[in-house]
Design a protein around this nucleic acid. Structure first.
Length: 895
RNA sequence: GCCCGAGUGGUGGAAUGGUAGACACGGAGGACUUAAAAUCCUCUCUACAUUGUAGGUGUGGGUUCGAGUCCCACCUUGGGCACCA
């Protein structure tokens, strides 16, 4: 086709289609020797300055100092093999623009980058290639870094961290041990060392110490001392913030591992793993947990103290799912006294109650409807159902029902309009404590074992779901008066309680590529932590990365590891990312996760930028860990991220997600090569509001490139002298707007105002006024955060001796970098307009314009407006009823 | 079903209750050029008519001198949660 591009004779469209080399317009001009403008060679300029900044450590963060601090952080990436597409850097560019402005404003800016480098893709690679995932991960990290570097970020790479490095995960393990050795004191409402709990038990037993999980039995100090070490350990497990337990987990046979809920997606025939699309089933398994539920209230309340987008706050609130209600006991009459010992927790000396009545606790937010109860329903998995099996006259049918529920796969359970099923427990009768009425007891799949008490009261009159169920099974529906919820709860001996949807987080993966959990299981069953001086507990070498298939991690096949008693589970992906922002404060410290001085100085993250997809994962877990560290006095603030901004993602031009699968991925490397890193940065910021999802458009990137070229060309026409007044005015307006807009993350309007300013410069220049060097330098400074390379280049030329022609090789000194210059201040005097043009409305419709002194009085505006011939026409033969004058804005004449 | 958010030209979008469509892409015309590209200039919401008039920010109401913006109802759409008692 038209391959004339060697002399820049092709259009930009063809440039992209044909991928021929971009040659800027000025090249031709130079060749024709019309104007002696050196070519804007983005490749050369950008490479030169990236190197210079690196050599001069331009962006080096100072240690704790007297300067005010500013911690600007990106959510660090997982270095995947797919690499970056143009959507990824958007958040990084935004935070970099912000960090650059703050640096110029005089803050000591901490703007680091690192890698979340433990994870499943590297594990899959190891399984497939039978090679260690470490070197593979290191390679990906290096690739990622390279991709990032050409965009010109102002990171202090000396502070880089990677979560898979032992010197880093040593401290992940250390924090885990702090959590293991801590419990949550619900009275003081904070975490405390477990040793203090043990001391309490030894002094006065557990009376008055609320357990985090259900322990009904009260023991004395004497009894505590009489318990075996194993029994004591089991009791403490109910309190520890990191604890061992069993849980139904999402088991994936093909991956041989357990998956988190967010690693599962809906498949055509049921749930499947996000990676690989393998089917997933439920399976009970030994796990480590994080007791995040202990912090549920504080995680909700803390949201009021931080400057985050509302939707993220809402998502977190919904996820935690606090609901306040009543817990009320219904006595259930059972004919025989036989109990089989079912799934009760492993509490010593559990008493066998022998009574014809057994209490069933129900949770309701509508205790006011209690007189309308016509039945109660338990979850099929409810422990009492098993306890009662000898009393249930239709037990075979009940048992069959329970089994059928258990066999239902996830999709069936989750389907929205699934019909509710259930079966009555014949032979047992519950008594409504409010009125003594006898009501039947049912089990049904719509009651969840994991929420509330696993039992509900059925009030068909007031609850839609109960109504459907009652209608289906012909249960009575009665209309009874409502009563006061709190009063009736007290009257029937119940209590007001708060329940949460959020569950404790599973903190174990049956995988190789994660942090080893630093615990030792002794032969006698006692668990002991690895001593701090022996951390990090490094991952051992393994022969095979293949999961064992029985649910244990590859570590279970390492003889020495197992013989030493080491825990074979590893930590989940979110372990390392829950505290990495603290490590950046003091990344090389080998005595602590970060030194006290550094933590005291940097405190918390001032500006955190990342995607919304982490709302219920990383952003919640980090807050939880941070609050824990705060309780233990390791960090000075209760919240880790003061301000949060979410970037919207960039989709492909075809409206789909950018993905290899659709072949619509635009690689930032190509854009940088063809248009330059500065153009990419300006374009991504100009595209639209930062938090909007936007389609990529290679068609319109040319606008940003033209903008930079015009700046470049204008630099040739600046001179010493006196500024034209209008130019100065627009410039200072722009300084104000850009400053405010960057502060607000309104980058698109910041760039638009820079373009307006440039337009003004150009038209002044065309009129022969010229633009002064002083004004142009101010312009370069406010453009610098967006286009750091080209502004540095032009800045250096301005700074350099003007007798030397611009050939881009000299006068490059770090001391005079534009990025370390002081952020311009606008002159308020210049913003005052002498004259303004306002609209003149008649009955709300603009009929004329009026140019008048900005400080004109209302009366003056009024009479000037009425005097306009055009307005006179409208007013002919009419009476003016009312005139509204808003000085500087508008005047409205009502007739 | 519940909880957030969004609907503005051909396109991305702008607009403290105050002249809707800034800025940019695309398009049309012109200048320069042997020619093209690049660059520069002009126009570009719609309909009608030669200065203008009328309509116009998803739909229908409302508040107001004045509504893209506030209120009510609805439609469409994106996201989150989802039998949560």
């Amino acid at each position: 086709m038209q391959l004339k591009c060697q002399i820049a004779s092709n259009c930009y469209k063809a440039l992209f289609v044909e991928k021929c080399l971009y040659m800027p317009s000025s090249a031709k001009a130079t060749a024709r020797q019309r104007k002696p403008i050196p070519t804007y060679d983005h490749l050369k300029i950008e490479k030169k300055w990236q190197k210079a900044w690196e050599n001069n450590k331009t962006y080096k963060t100072e240690g704790p100092s007297k300067k005010p601090k500013m911690y600007v952080l990106d959510m660090f990436p997982y270095p995947s093999g797919a690499g970056l597409h143009v959507g990824h850097p958007r958040g990084y560019i935004a935070s970099d623009v912000y960090a650059r402005m703050k640096r110029m404003e005089g803050f000591n800016v901490l703007h680091p980058m690192g890698f979340d480098s433990f994870g499943l893709p590297a594990e899959q690679y190891a399984i497939q290639t039978k090679k260690h995932p470490g070197p593979f991960t290191d390679k990906l990290v290096a690739q990622y870094k390279k991709q990032l570097e050409i965009i010109g970020f102002s990171y202090d790479w000396d502070r880089e961290v990677s979560t898979h490095r032992p010197e880093y995960y040593k401290w992940t393990q250390w924090i885990f041990l702090q959590l293991y050795d801590a419990w949550y004191d619900t009275k003081k409402n904070k975490a405390r060392p477990i040793a203090e709990l043990i001391a309490l038990f030894e002094k006065s037993g557990n009376a008055g110490v609320a357990a985090a999980t259900d322990i009904r039995e009260i023991f004395s100090a004497k009894e505590w001392k009489g318990f075996s070490a194993i029994d004591q350990q089991n009791i403490l497990m109910h309190y520890r913030l990191a604890y061992e337990g069993f849980a139904e987990v999402n088991w994936c046979e093909e991956l041989g591992t357990v998956l988190a809920n967010d690693e599962i997606v809906d498949g055509p025939t049921g749930p499947v793993s996000e990676r690989g699309g393998y089917s997933v089933i439920k399976k009970p398994m030994r796990q480590w947990f994080m007791r995040i539920t202990a912090y549920a209230d504080r995680l909700i309340e803390g949201l009021d103290t931080i400057d985050w987008p509302n939707n993220i706050k809402e998502v977190q609130k919904n996820w935690i799912g606090r609901s306040e209600g009543s817990e009320i006991e219904f006595q259930v009459q059972i004919p025989t006294n036989s109990f089989s010992n079912g799934q009760t927790p492993p509490i010593p000396h559990s008493k066998n109650h022998s009574s014809p009545f057994a209490p069933v606790s129900v949770f309701t937010t509508r205790a006011d409807t209690i007189f309308g109860v016509t039945y109660i329903v338990l979850a099929p998995e409810h422990a009492l159902v098993q306890d009662w099996q000898n009393s249930i006259t239709n037990w075979p049918a009940v048992e069959k029902y329970i089994k059928s529920v258990a066999q239902k796969d996830e999709t069936e359970r989750m389907s929205t309009d699934k019909e509710k099923t259930g079966i009555q427990l014949e032979g047992v009768i519950a008594i409504n404590p409010a009125n003594g009425e006898e009501v039947p007891v049912w089990i049904a799949d719509y009651v969840l074992a994991g929420y509330g008490t696993g039992a509900v009261m059925g009030v068909p009159q007031h609850d839609e779901r109960d109504h459907i169920f009652a209608t289906k099974y012909n249960l009575p529906i009665v209309d009874r008066p409502l009563v006061d919820a709190m009063t009736i709860t007290k009257k029937v001996g119940g209590s007001m309680v708060t329940k949460y949807k959020m569950r404790d987080a599973i903190f174990a993966r049956q995988r190789y590529w994660g942090e080893p959990i630093p615990l030792i299981h002794r032969a006698d069953g006692i668990i002991i932590p690895v001593k701090e001086k022996n951390l990090p507990l490094e991952l051992p070498k393994v022969k095979s990365y293949q999961p064992s298939g029985n649910g244990e991690s590859p570590l279970a096949k390492v003889k020495s590891w197992v013989e030493a008693g080491y825990e074979t589970n590893t930590m989940p992906g979110w372990a390392g990312s829950s505290w990495y922002f603290l490590r950046y404060m003091d990344p090389k410290n080998n005595k602590a996760f970060a030194g006290e001085k550094a933590i005291e100085y940097w405190k918390d993250v001032d500006m955190y930028v990342g995607g919304t997809e982490h709302a219920t994962g990383h952003l919640l877990y980090s807050r939880f860990w941070h609050k824990f560290l705060f309780d233990m006095d390791y960090v000075p603030t209760p919240e880790p991220f003061k301000r949060l901004k979410n970037q919207g993602f960039i989709g492909a031009a075809d409206g789909r997600k950018m993905s290899k699968r659709w072949g619509n991925v635009i690689n930032p490397d190509d854009i940088v090569k063809n248009y330059g890193g500065d153009t990419l940065r300006v374009f991504e910021m100009f595209l639209g509001p930062f938090d909007s999802h936007l389609p990529w458009s290679t068609e319109s990137i040319i606008g940003s490139r033209r903008f930079i070229e015009r700046v470049w060309r204008l630099s040739e026409n600046v001179a010493d002298g006196v500024s034209e007044k209008n130019v100065e005015k627009v410039l200072h307006k722009t300084i104000k707007k850009v400053t405010n807009d960057i502060q607000q993350f309104a980058f698109n309007t910041a760039i638009s105002s820079l373009m307006i300013c440039l337009n003004e410069f150009e038209s002044a220049s065309a009129k022969g006024y010229g633009v002064t060097k002083k004004d142009f330098k101010l312009f370069l400074q406010i453009l610098a955060p967006f286009a750091p390379h080209v502004t540095e280049e032009l800045w250096q030329h301005m700074e350099a001796n003007r007798r030397v022609s611009m050939d881009g090789t000299r006068h490059d000194s770090a001391e005079s970098s534009i990025h370390l210059s002081a952020w311009p201040k606008y002159d308020p005097k210049l913003l005052i307009e002498d004259e303004v043009t306002i609209g003149v409305q008649v009955n709300g419709k603009v009929r004329a314009e009026l140019t008048i002194a900005a400080d004109a009085s209302k009366e003056a505006i009024e009479s000037a407006a009425l005097a306009l011939p055009r307005i006179q026409e409208f007013l002919q033969g009419k009476t003016v009823k009312k005139i509204i004058v808003i000085p500087v804005r508008i005047i409205n004449i009502v007739i």
